[in-house]
Amino acid sequence: MSEQTYEISTTLDVTGLMCPMPLVKARKAIMDLEVGQVIEVLATDKGSIKDFQGWAKVAKNVELLAQNEKEGGDTTIYAHVVKRTK
């Protein structure tokens, strides 16, 4: 993950969904973006942290810019910031 400023184009809410849905929906959403645009994916599935890291490692068209934890009431929300690179 590289330290850089980014502008989020769109936010995808996949809270409540479990593996593999956060990834599947994020993939669909990122294909609707222009190259260079950034999406923020909000998930509650704890496994999505490693899943998004794996996605960025394997897929050739995405870069993981940041992963933040947000307190959303009684559940933790994991915000994955992903950029379409190709």
């Binding site: 593996c19 593999p20 990834l23 599947v24 993939r27 794996g54 897929a59």
Partner: peptide, 12 residues
């Protein structure tokens, strides 16, 4: 099928 969808999401 979970592995399959995961792979597809990764562009495989």
């Amino acid at each position: 099928f979970i592995i399959a969808t995961g792979a597809l999401a990764m562009g495989y």
